[in-house]
Computed example of a mutant assay.
Amino acid sequence: AGERAAERARGLDLPGLVLLGAAVSLFTVPLVLGQEKDWPLWSWLSLGASAVVFALFCGYESRLSRSGGAPLIAPRVLRIPGMGLAVFRITVVMAVNAGFLFVLTLHIQGGLGYSALRAGLTFAPTAVVFGVVGLTWRRWPAAVQRALIPGGFALSAVSALAVGLLLRDGGEGGPWLYVAFVGVGVGLSLGFSPTLTRALSTVRPEDAADASGLLSTVAQIGQLTGVAAFGALFLNRLESQGAPGAYSSADALLVCAYALAGAAALGAVSGLVRMRR
């Protein structure tokens, strides 16, 4: 414990921070700007370079840890049982959550003409149930606890797809739309809260700060990736439809809904992996 305290006292892992920031920027900038620039060569080179820089980051962090330094992301934390799955699930949850809210905002404000206030109120059911489920899931029956994570991801996949289908005709979706919003909120909360709690419950006290920092960083990267990737998909599809309007925007949203459902389905599969252990 004394050695690790000394490691942390040596300060910030600035090279690691620069490498990670560069990798994330090289990945997200072309996703954000590539669509409006008609995907020039530099955007594809940037995406490829992001993988190279991320590999350099991983190698640097491993070497720093072996030499007794204090890496930005401690490799030993990733070796904690279940932590790798937790990183994947939290990335998926945050990407789906941020991507869903972003593309839906683009549609209901740009396509349907909602005001910012009305758009925010439209999301209220999703936000409320996300918080309520996150605070209460541990009191649910023991018989369903093992199924919460895969079930949550599956519910969010079905619900996100339902949102796209309900809005596909350019209308407002009717009352069933809000049922689907509730399903998205419940599903994402079940994918996130049990994952975070169970991952941190296996961490030794001396590794708690590193594990918490890792999962917080992953959550932020997931949100950024979700906005960039699903936003680019929406805008690309919208541009391909020609003149913007409610119908073309609804079509772009439906394409994103299929992609969001697919991403959530991957989270459900990861939940099944855990259940079989």
Rank of each mutant, 00 (worst) to 15 (best):
I80F: 03
G111H: 10
S43Y: 07
A51I: 05
G111Y: 09
L121T: 10
V92R: 01
F123V: 15
T122D: 03
A95W: 07
A55G: 04
L85N: 11
L45T: 03
M83L: 13
F102G: 06
F102D: 06
G110M: 08
S115F: 07
S43Q: 09
R76D: 14
V52S: 05
T122K: 00
G113H: 09
V53K: 00
A74G: 01
A116T: 14
L64F: 07
S46P: 05
V96W: 00
A98R: 09
G48Q: 08
R63N: 06
C58N: 02
R76Y: 05
Q109F: 03
V129H: 11
A127S: 14
V103R: 11
A49G: 14
C58I: 12
A51T: 03
S115W: 09
L72C: 14
V52Q: 03
V92G: 05
C58P: 00
G68T: 11
P81L: 06
A95M: 15
F123K: 04
G110K: 01
E61W: 03
G131K: 09
G120V: 12
L104G: 03
V53G: 01
I90P: 00
L121E: 09
E61Y: 02
L41D: 10
F54G: 01
C58E: 04
F102Q: 06
Y114E: 05
G69W: 04
S62I: 02
Y60W: 15
W42M: 11
R89K: 12
A116C: 09
A70K: 02
S67D: 15
P75N: 07
L117C: 07
E61F: 06
L45S: 06
S65P: 08
G68I: 14
V103A: 13
P125G: 11
N97A: 14
R63T: 04
G99R: 06
R76M: 05
I80E: 02
P71W: 12
A127N: 11
M83K: 12
S65K: 10
W42N: 08
W42K: 08
L64H: 08
G69V: 05
G99Y: 10
A98K: 05
P81E: 03
A51Q: 01
L106M: 12
V87D: 03
W44M: 11
V93T: 14
V128R: 09
F54P: 02
A49K: 00
A86S: 14
F54N: 02
E61R: 01
G69I: 05
I80W: 03
P125A: 12
A98Q: 14
V52H: 03
S62G: 00
G113S: 09
A127T: 14
P71A: 13
Y60I: 07
A86H: 01
V103S: 14
A127D: 04
G69Q: 07
R118L: 13
S50L: 13
L64T: 12
P71H: 14
F57A: 00
L117V: 15
V92A: 11
L101H: 07
M83Q: 10
G110R: 00
G120D: 04
Y114A: 06
F123Q: 14
V128H: 09
R76G: 02
I73A: 15
A124I: 13
L85R: 07
T105G: 13
V129A: 09
A95I: 11
L112T: 13
F88K: 02
F130I: 06
A86I: 02
T105S: 15
L101C: 05
S50C: 15
R63I: 02
Q109W: 03
